[in-house]
Computed example of a mutant assay.
Amino acid sequence: MVRPVRRSRAGLPGWAFAPAALGAVFVVLPLVAVVAEVDWAAFPSLVTSEASLAALRLSLVTAACSTAVCLLLGVPLALVLARCSFPGLRVLRSLVLVPLVLPPVVGGIALLYTFGRQGLLGSSLEVLGLRVAFSTAAVVIAQSFVAMPFLVLSLEGALRGGGTRYERVAATLGASPTAVLGRVTLPLVMPGLVSGAVLSFARSLGEFGATLTFAGSLQGVTRTLPLEVYLQRETDARAAVALSLVLVVVAVVVIVVARGRRTEGL
């Protein structure tokens, strides 16, 4: 006689809780280690130094700008991927999501050979007097490149999950496509849109590899907080830990906001 698998009150096998606990410890323990390593007596002075404040300010400004770029370009892209059907759609969707798995430094090299002085578009921009690489604009471009797939993926999933029933009804009543988009589609997927925007902001804030490769590390111009953490690690480990904690706190706040919005949309 085969014995049935013993299940917990949650409907899960009892053995699942042990590896789940190990997985949680594996993720949480390094964060606890960062908190435990912080020199709390010197923490205020470490995170308020001129270099730290300049890096934090630049990170917040560029992350906000890149999030705006992701919204401006990513929302129409997600709409096309979710609502249209044409040859090559699957290939396009795959290419759009490539930055999710691409090593950031490779993305930085790709951007450098696109917008650099001798790049695909950079040489033409140089003629017009526009130098993109190793500028603050390069930071925004690098962050947008790696963050946009998060917005597209989140919004496309929300669009597909919501269906098109209400949109068809609105169109039947005479609403124009623009009116349907603004009054029906976007309000229905707003939780997914907000969640994608928040995740894009978080990804932009933590971007390192593509920024370093494409924009460099010039204080006040391209040196974001992750780059400052990396540099401080070589000279002042206490400052690196303190700034790392700042990034951890920001990341936790962003995740809480994103998860709260997603829960509201359920």
Rank of each mutant, 00 (worst) to 15 (best):
I141F: 04
F150H: 10
V139H: 12
S135E: 08
V132M: 00
F150K: 13
A133P: 01
L125F: 12
L125H: 04
L120R: 02
R131K: 11
G122H: 14
L128A: 15
F134P: 06
V127A: 14
G122W: 01
S123I: 09
L125V: 00
L128Y: 12
V140M: 09
I141Q: 00
G122C: 11
V140W: 06
F134V: 13
S124M: 06
F134D: 08
T136A: 13
V132L: 06
G129P: 14
V146N: 04
L120M: 00
A137H: 00
G122L: 11
G129V: 07
V139A: 06
A138K: 08
V127D: 04
L153I: 02
S124Y: 04
A147V: 04
V127K: 00
A142T: 14
V127C: 01
T136D: 05
S154G: 10
R131H: 15
Q143N: 13
E126W: 03
A133H: 11
M148I: 15
V132C: 05
E126R: 14
S123Y: 12
S154P: 13
F150N: 14
L121I: 13
S144E: 03
V152Y: 11
L128T: 01
A133I: 04
A147Y: 09
L153D: 09
F145I: 03
T136I: 09
V146P: 01
S154D: 09
V146I: 14
S123K: 09
S124E: 02
F134S: 11
T136H: 07
G129C: 13
A142F: 07
L120V: 05
M148H: 01
L120C: 01
A137N: 04
V146R: 06
L151R: 03
V127W: 01
A142V: 08
L153V: 09
L121D: 04
S144C: 10
V139L: 11
R131Y: 01
A137P: 02
A133K: 07
S123D: 08
L155W: 07
S124V: 02
L130I: 13
P149W: 05
F145R: 02
S144G: 12
S144F: 15
L120E: 02
L155S: 13
L120K: 07
G129S: 13
L155Y: 05
A142D: 06
V152K: 06
R131I: 10
V127L: 11
F134I: 08
G129K: 11
A138G: 11
M148K: 00
F150V: 12
A147E: 04
L130E: 03
L128R: 14
V139W: 11
F145A: 08
A142N: 05
I141W: 02
R131G: 03
G129R: 08
L130H: 15
A142Q: 07
V127M: 12
L128H: 14
A142L: 08
L121Y: 00
P149D: 13
F150A: 14
V139I: 01
Q143T: 07
L153N: 14
G129T: 03
R131F: 03
T136C: 11
V132A: 07
P149C: 15
L121W: 15
V152N: 09
P149T: 10
V140H: 00
L130D: 03
V127Q: 06
I141L: 13
A138M: 08
S154F: 07
A147I: 14
F145D: 11
V152F: 12
L151P: 04
